[in-house]
Amino acid sequence: MICSPPKSHDCIVLSNKRLSENSIYLTRLHCPDIAQNSSSGQFVNIKVSNELSPLLRRPFSICKVDKAEGWFEVLWQIVGRGTTLMAGYKVDDVINIIGPLGHGFHIKSGIESAILVGGGLGIAPLPFLCQDILEKSSANIAVYVGVRTKADLAMAELFNDFDINIIQCTEDGSAGIQGYVTKPLIEKLASKSSVPPVLFSCGPEVFLKRMVDISSEFDVEGQISVESVMGCGFGICVGCPVEVQDYAEGERKYKLTCIDGPVFDSREVLLVG
């Protein structure tokens, strides 16, 4: 697939909402080029500030787009200095962003059933994926959302615009089904519905490793979006390798999360987990 080269944009902050008490934010940015030319699973790399620290950009999945209004959203949580600064973004601030970047999800024409599974902030690219699947097919979609606690389920509200089935799980049992999201997922897959679904997932590495095993166990296609520390986001620093099995060449090698991914076929990636 030939990708257009990444471009740099000065994007205007339209809103910066705190979604939950656990410092999860949804930021809406005006940028018609990114809104109109990105596909689900791709990401953007945000220049958080003009200071020397934090030095590097911060990568975020594109969470949702509105092509007509020319905006996109990113979903994130305060974890360090960069995201602490982002929490201070105000409406009309101008932020430099490179994107869209990477290879996103592959939606086959004629897809009949899709199961989207998000672990924690791994939910981030899934609303856009929902949009994409609904635009390109008439597939039946189910979303499995797994978070630590009730407050994080604010992220599940991002799917409210879609007429789809949402299964919510919390690790502490404070809302929805108690336990890991993989439990109801396995029950669903074991129930042998007539159409084999494609499993799309995003989340922490240990969760993705489990999703790779589940795809293999139930012999269904899986696509996973992996996360990595990145230096640049567009292939020049070569700092974000992921080990893959090249079946054609019969060898293990490295691909780059930023330009070869972040979405990979679940049979290909060798996760440490």
Binding site: L55, L56, V229, C240, P241, V242
Partner: peptide, 15 residues
């Protein structure tokens, strides 16, 4: 092929 990950780590004003 290069070294196994992690290959980079950010520091204040450096990496």
């Amino acid at each position: 092929d290069g070294n196994p990950p992690p290959r980079i780590f950010e520091l204040p004003a450096g990496m």
